[in-house]
């Protein structure tokens, strides 16, 4: 009996210890965003004491030397370039994922996985260079003139296109995973009721995969919101609210990356950049809360 206990006790102890570590790891990960958020808030406090949040969000005038800190143009720059990339990439990814998982021959699907891996592995600066060399001149010399417009090519649309291409591997990969995880028996059930293959996809597969689809698309959006270097290289970086897709824009990450470390002698400048980071953080937080809420609602149904 005693021998038995001696055998059991260490097992119990290691069990306790390991759950302890697991809890600690999870707690640490949960606290991580809080820690980052708190850091950003503390660093932006000097600016927050000087200027009202309302004006900073509404005003588009950003001239730190004069003490004007309006972030509206940057917020709009981020929102538009992200939306644009989403509109350009999401439908293509969705249709491609359906085709690749439901219709295409095996070899094509396999080669697509290879392409996805390659695309995901390319560093973002390379996408940026490619955008400068290909997309920017394409828009400036061909697309805009064809529409009777002029642009330098360093504009919202260039940013959107580059971001869309960068989001493709992530979205496509996840969407394909979603469709592959729909059990074949479910499709068989629908088909055996006389539905065509397309009806089955439309009414059953998409519905079954809805939560996964939303998660995949929101991952794409999060990627686009946070992407910095590639956008910064093609988007023009002019602190004005863009009026068309051929106007230059200045998204928040670009603002931070372009200016951090420079012009630190200007009063409140570093605090302003921290506030820009905080804004980005809050946008991502709000966006993810909204998708989580939708996912929760769908699962509840």
């Amino acid at each position: 009996m005693a021998a038995l206990q001696r055998l059991i006790l260490p097992a119990k102890l290691t069990d306790r210890l390991s759950t302890g570590w697991l809890n600690f790891a999870v707690l640490f990960l949960i606290l991580l965003p809080l820690v980052i958020g708190a850091g950003l808030v503390i660093k932006s406090l000097p600016l927050l004491e000087q200027a009202s949040i309302g004006t900073m969000l509404h005003s588009a005038e950003f001239s730190p030397q004069q003490g004007h800190f309006g972030f509206y143009a940057f917020i709009m720059g981020s929102v538009w370039v992200t939306l644009l990339s989403f509109v350009l990439s999401a439908p293509v990814c969705l249709l491609a994922a359906i085709y690749l998982t439901e219709y295409s021959p095996q070899w094509l699907t396999q080669s697509m996985y290879f392409v996805i891996d390659v695309l995901a592995g390319i560093p973002s600066v390379v996408y940026g260079v490619w955008g400068v060399l290909v997309i920017v001149p394409l828009l400036a010399d061909y697309v805009a003139p064809a529409l009777g417009l002029t642009t330098t090519g360093y504009c919202l649309l260039s940013g959107g296109i580059v971001l869309a291409i960068m989001a493709v591997p992530y979205m496509l990969n996840m969407l394909m995973e979603v469709f592959r995880s729909v059990p074949i028996e479910l499709k068989e059930a629908s088909l055996s009721l006389g539905a065509t293959y397309w009806e089955t996809i439309k009414w059953v597969v998409l519905k079954k995969g809805l939560t996964g689809i939303i998660a995949a698309l929101s991952l794409g959006i999060s990627k686009a919101l946070g992407e910095t270097i590639a956008v910064l290289m093609v988007v023009g970086n002019v602190a004005k609210v863009p009026k068309s897709v051929f106007d230059a824009a200045y998204p928040l990450p670009a603002l931070i990356a372009n200016n951090y470390g420079d012009m630190m002698s200007v009063p409140l400048y570093d605090s302003a950049l921290m506030f820009a980071a905080l804004l980005l953080f809050v946008i991502i937080l709000v966006f993810n809360s909204i998708t989580s809420f939708f996912l929760y609602r769908i699962k509840e149904q």
């Binding site: 059990p183 028996e185 479910l186 068989e188 059930a189 629908s190 088909l191 055996s192 009721l193 006389g194 539905a195 065509t196 009414w203 059953v204 519905k207 079954k208």
Partner: peptide, 20 residues
């Protein structure tokens, strides 16, 4: 195909209710 499949009801090993 639709006509053929509608002539046969299928009941599989495990139930797979449609997601609705």
């Amino acid at each position: 195909l639709t006509t053929i499949r509608q002539k046969m009801g299928l009941l599989s090993q495990r139930p797979f209710p449609l997601p609705m």
